[in-house]
Design a protein around this nucleic acid. Structure first.
Lengths: 246, 246
DNA sequence: ACAAAAGTGTTGGAGTTACACCCATGG
DNA sequence: CCATGGGTGTAACTCCAACACTTTTGT
């Protein structure tokens, strides 16, 4: 695989979601542009993570590469959710400046294929060659560069749709997790409150969430039993449903 | 809007689904390539419908344009479902020939944004400037050009996912339709058989499917009552659900 | 002993499944 | 009068929503 992009006008953007025990977070990268003349910084704002697509690389591989470069993780949840190509998507003044500085023509259309990813944040170390990268709670995200607010928004919609029908919540949690953690994941993603007893009855019907003999330690209250997700059981028991509810 | 494509290497492909009363169909276009030398036809196979994206046009507008050029319809169901950019997606021998003939470099990556569309076929007239375009039952689609079998397949998956959770079946039917027609839509798309009485109980709970006083005419059996879909009622009554069933 | 979160059961109502017969029309 | 598809009800079961108290641990 070579490292030359196939085309400067096609890229992937990854909306990387994490969970800190309280809130849904998203990984953002600083965008800074320092004036060639004065040395002052002209732009300081934030973007989602993204990159070009290399020769011989599929777009999915490009998205996995972005994830790996940032987190060192390889087997993470990744889902292509939408492609963005509005003619005006990069036409804000700062975006034009940035593109020019990057040697690209701001009048040309730039297509971006959006992926969203779920990662268990607890034990990863962020790294991206000299650029500042950090977790921001989704509720506190300000104005982002380019059309990245819109991309984030669509990613959230895709995430909510997906989590309603597929068990992907555990992707945001450590391998062993408590049911309260899982419930909280659904609550923060869906923006609803759930009844603890009813939630647990629902979980009990999902045979792929398996209780272990382990319990939390070092907590100042009754320690919770820990569960694991079993992909094998899930693949065996899933079936298509006919439930066009609403 | 100008008519020059923004980029010969980006396009939209539309998977246009229809329903003939029995089967789910898809709209295909002949691809023929006549040898410059011998005059013999070198390639005769079929493709999905697609086109380039013009300057100042969004990708969605490009997809609507393709639909309009083929059917004369403007307000049809259209959903972006996936983007295709595999490095080898157009590398079959016939595809390379075709691209060369079309003045494009077959070694360059071509990105295609996939849309699927549902249209009520009963009263439209197909037209596409000299090219042959026709309905083919999905179950009888043979080998298509490019990676269009894969695109069709992903479109089917997207359609099945969507119809399980949103009332879009009526998009394939005339404005007034019988419940048996609706049930058959679900059966052919999902590949299942449904119980007539249970299906109708479910329908009865969907307030946006409204019975009219009209009945079928000219059928050699008890005529069916006709229903209409009310988007207003639907928008009012829909709510997000928490049903991440298996 | 107290604070904090874990864990557990019941009841009434709604949805789901399975199943068989009569009805209205055209030919 | 017959062939064709339209239209209907019930019972058993499972799922859903609402609701409060006891348990286990660390401090």
């Amino acid at each position: 695989m070579t490292n030359s992009p196939i085309n400067n006008y096609i890229s992937v953007d990854c909306v990387i979601f994490g969970y800190n025990g309280q809130e849904l977070q998203v990984l953002l990268v600083d965008r800074t542009l320092t004036s060639d003349i004065t040395g002052d910084s002209e732009i300081t704002d934030m973007t989602l993570t993204g990159n070009h697509i290399y020769e011989d690389e599929t777009i999915e591989e490009a998205a996995y590469r972005v994830l790996f470069d940032l987190t060192g993780l390889k087997n993470v949840f990744l889902d292509q959710f939408k492609t963005f190509a509005h003619p005006d998507r990069l036409k804000k003044e700062n975006d034009r400046k940035w593109l020019l500085h990057d040697g690209r023509d701001p009048d040309k259309r730039i297509v971006s294929i959006g992926y969203f990813s779920l990662i268990a944040t607890q034990s990863i170390t962020l790294e991206w060659k000299g650029r500042n990268v950090k977790w921001v709670p989704v509720s506190e995200v300000g104005e982002l560069a380019f059309d990245h607010n819109q991309i984030l928004n669509e990613a959230l919609i895709a995430l909510r749709n997906k989590i309603k029908h597929e068990p992907i919540g555990f992707e945001l949690l450590p391998e062993r997790f408590s049911l309260t953690q899982m419930q909280n994941i659904y609550e923060v993603i869906m923006g609803t409150e759930l009844d603890k007893r009813n939630f647990r009855k629902k979980i009990a019907r999902m045979k792929y969430l398996i209780p272990t003999d382990e319990k939390q330690t070092g907590v100042a209250h009754k320690p919770a039993r820990l569960y694991v997700f079993s992909r094998e059981v899930y693949e065996k028991t899933k079936k298509e449903l006919f439930d066009f509810t609403v």
